[in-house]
């Protein structure tokens, strides 16, 4: 009686397996560990750990000395071209982090950014009707004071690498999917 209830409530995938001819008892017992296997599992865990100690398989990259080459369309820091800008203030309205504010330049409103608030969502870049923002892949900025993160218009019209202090990055690498390790890094160029 109870067995029939179990069969009716069974997962359809397991039901299908049983109908295909698998031994039902084997299918149902699959998650029970054997009591003698505790030692075996402990030894397996220790050996796996030891394998990684003697033969390292690192998935991270040695960052400031090597860095990943970012793909096209990577959302890094950006600048504004104040000659293209028409002062529509759409970027200020759409900014979810309230990072953009407008300053007056020759009776025209032009955006400046606070890098401390910017979340790099690129809504401003997308919404701009005249494509006044020029994007870059840089994001490795290092600021030592909060005030430095508030850009002036003069700074925001320059490319970020010209006014933002940046870490010196060594060689660039690209990420390759590897069947054995998951990820692999290959030097670019």
């Amino acid at each position: 009686m109870s067995l029939r209830i179990v069969e009716e409530e069974m997962d359809p995938e397991i039901k299908e397996l049983i109908e295909k001819g698998f031994d039902k008892t084997k299918v149902l017992k699959v998650s029970l560990p054997k009591p003698g296997a505790v030692v075996q599992r402990n030894v397996d865990a220790l050996l796996t750990g030891f394998k990684y100690v003697v033969k390292p398989m690192r998935l991270t990259i040695d960052y400031p000395y090597k860095a990943v080459e970012y793909p096209e369309g990577y959302r890094g820091m950006f600048r504004v071209d104040d000659n293209k800008c028409v002062g529509c203030s759409l970027c200020d309205v759409v900014c979810p982090a309230d990072a953009i504010r407008l300053v007056l330049k020759d009776k025209k409103k032009v955006p400046v950014i606070n890098w401390g608030r910017c979340i790099f969502c690129y809504f401003c870049v997308d919404i701009c009707p005249v494509e006044a923002f020029e994007t870059t892949k840089y994001h490795d900025a290092v600021f030592t004071r909060f005030e430095d993160m508030l850009t002036t218009l003069e700074e925001f019209t320059k490319r970020p690498e010209d006014y933002v202090p940046m870490r010196k990055i060594g060689k660039r690498y690209k990420v390759v999917i590897d069947e054995y390790r998951g990820l692999r890094y290959e030097p670019v160029g």
């Binding site: 990684y52 690192r58 991270t60």
Partner: peptide, 13 residues
């Protein structure tokens, strides 16, 4: 360092 190696990272360097 060992914890770093087993967790597939570099550890203190």
């Amino acid at each position: 360092k060992i914890a770093g190696l087993v967790q597939l990272r570099y550890g203190p360097l």
